[in-house]
Design a protein around this nucleic acid. Structure first.
Length: 376
DNA sequence: TACTCGTGGTC
DNA sequence: TGACCAAGAGT
C-alpha cells in the first residue's frame, strides 16, 4: 500500500471489457519489433509446443538463458517428447541435468512427465489450476505455460516482472512481502488477447531494457508511464529485505582409485542438497570440522594421504571448504555397499554436480603433477 | 513466513 | 573479490 503513485494510471479491472490497457498495447508493439529469438520460443504466428515451453520454463527457473541453452538442446535431442522423458530412468535425467543446479527440478521434471503421460494422456493441462497440480510447477510456471503454450490470460510473475512492476509504480514495499501486491498489479495489465506474447514481452523487457543495473529507460516502451523513471530512482527498485550472511561449512572428500584407472563414486540420498546426484564419498559438511577425525570415515581402509590445496564452493546458503584425501587400492577390490567404480577417463559421464567435479579436477591435477612412481 | 536448494556471470 | 543476480518451487 506504500505506493508513490502520482503519475501512473493503471487501468481498473475490466472483466467484461475487451479493451486492453494502453500499457499492454505499447508493450506488444515493442515486442513485435524487439522480441528475442530463443530456441524454445515459437516464431510469430506459429503455435507454441507445450512440451518445449514447459521444459524451458523449468530449466529457466533461477537460471540464465545462456546457461540453459546447451542443456535445452541436449534434453530435446535425448527426450524429443514428454513420452520419451517419462520413459527414461530418473538417473539418466539427473545425469543429463548435472551442472545446471537445483537438482530437485530434474527430479520433479521427471515426475511431472510421468504424471502428464499417465494421468493426462500425454497432454499438458491447459489451465493455470490444472498445471499447478503437477510436480515442479508453481505459481509462476503454471501461469507462464498457460499463457505461452495455451494463450490464456494468466499473469506470469517472475523476478523480471517484479522488477518492472515495482519500478512502474515505484513500489516501496520490499520483496518478498510485495509479491501479492505486484501480482495484483500484473493481473490488471494482462490483455485478453495475445496473453502469451504479453508474458514473454514483459520478461524480454525486464531482461533487455529494465535490467537490475543501468536500465535503458530511453528505449523503454513504458518510460512515460513509469513512476520510478519520473523520479529518477529506477535503479533503487525493487526494494528488498536484507539477506542473511552465508556461514562456512567444512568437510573432507575421499578420492579412492582402483587399479590406477577407476574412482569410487556413490549416490546421494534422494532428498536434500544435491539429492539423488552421484558424488565422491566424503564426510558430512559442518561448521565444526576435525581433519584427523575425518579419516575415521574413509570408505575403505588404505594408505590415505591429503592432497595439497582445497576445494571451495559456494552454495545458495553456505560456503564450503573441502579437504581432499586420496588413496589407491588393487584392481580386484570390490566397491563398498552402495558404491561403484567409475573410469577416471569417463568422469564427465558420471553426471557429477559442479562441486564434485572440482574435487575430481583437484585429484587429477595432483596425479598429473606427481613425480613419484606411484600413480596417486 | 522463512528456509532450503546450485551455478556461473557480472561489476 | 565478494556480493548480487538469473524465466522459483517445495516444505
Amino acid at each position: 500500500m506504500n505506493r508513490v503513485d502520482s503519475s501512473t494510471n493503471l487501468p481498473a479491472p475490466t472483466p467484461g471489457g475487451k479493451r486492453a490497457a494502453p500499457e499492454a498495447e505499447h508493450l506488444l508493439v515493442w515486442y513485435d519489433r524487439h522480441r528475442r529469438r530463443l530456441p524454445w520460443r515459437a516464431e510469430p504466428g506459429v503455435a507454441a509446443d507445450p512440451y518445449k515451453v514447459w521444459l524451458s520454463e523449468i530449466m529457466l527457473q533461477q537460471t540464465t538463458v545462456k546457461a540453459v541453452g546447451p542443456y535445452f538442446a541436449a534434453f530435446l535431442a535425448a527426450f524429443p517428447t514428454v513420452e520419451a522423458l517419462a520413459a527414461a530412468p530418473v538417473e539418466e535425467v539427473l545425469r543429463r541435468w548435472a551442472g545446471l543446479g537445483y537438482y530437485a527440478r530434474a527430479r520433479n521434471l521427471h515426475a511431472c512427465a510421468r504424471a502428464v503421460v499417465q494421468q493426462h494422456g500425454g497432454r499438458f493441462p491447459e489451465t493455470e489450476a490444472g498445471l499447478r497440480t503437477l510436480p515442479g510447477i508453481g505459481p509462476y510456471t503454471a501461469a507462464a505455460v498457460a499463457a505461452i503454450a495455451f494463450d490464456q490470460p494468466a499473469a506470469a510473475v517472475d523476478g523480471n516482472v517484479e522488477r518492472v512492476i515495482a519500478r512502474l509504480v515505484a513500489l516501496e514495499t520490499p520483496l518478498p512481502a510485495a509479491k501479492p501486491e505486484i501480482r495484483a498489479l500484473a493481473e490488471r495489465l494482462v490483455p485478453l488477447a495475445r496473453a502469451g506474447d504479453f508474458a514473454q514481452a514483459l520478461m524480454d523487457l525486464g531482461a533487455t531494457i529494465c535490467m537490475p543495473r543501468q536500465p535503458a529507460c530511453a528505449l523503454c516502451p513504458w518510460s512515460e508511464a513509469c513512476a520510478a523513471r519520473a523520479a529518477g530512482t529506477q535503479e533503487t527498485f525493487p526494494r528488498k529485505a536484507a539477506k542473511a550472511a552465508r556461514p562456512l561449512r567444512r568437510g573432507a572428500a575421499f578420492w579412492l582409485v582402483r587399479g590406477g584407472a577407476e574412482v569410487l563414486l556413490r549416490r546421494r540420498p534422494q532428498k536434500g542438497l544435491l539429492g539423488g546426484m552421484a558424488e565422491v564419498p566424503g564426510t558430512a559438511w559442518q561448521a565444526e570440522f576435525d581433519a584427523a577425525g575425518a579419516l575415521a570415515e574413509v570408505p575403505l581402509a588404505a594408505d590415505w594421504r591429503r592432497l595439497a590445496g582445497m576445494v571451495r564452493h559456494g552454495f545458495t546458503h553456505f560456503e564450503l571448504e573441502l579437504l581432499v584425501f586420496a588413496a589407491d587400492v588393487p584392481a580386484s577390490t570390490p566397491p563398498p555397499e552402495g558404491g561403484w567404480w567409475q573410469p577416471v577417463e569417463d568422469i564427465d559421464g558420471a553426471g557429477l554436480p559442479t562441486v564434485m567435479m572440482k574435487i575430481a579436477r583437484l585429484a587429477v591435477a595432483a596425479r598429473d603433477s606427481n613425480q613419484d612412481a606411484r600413480s596417486w
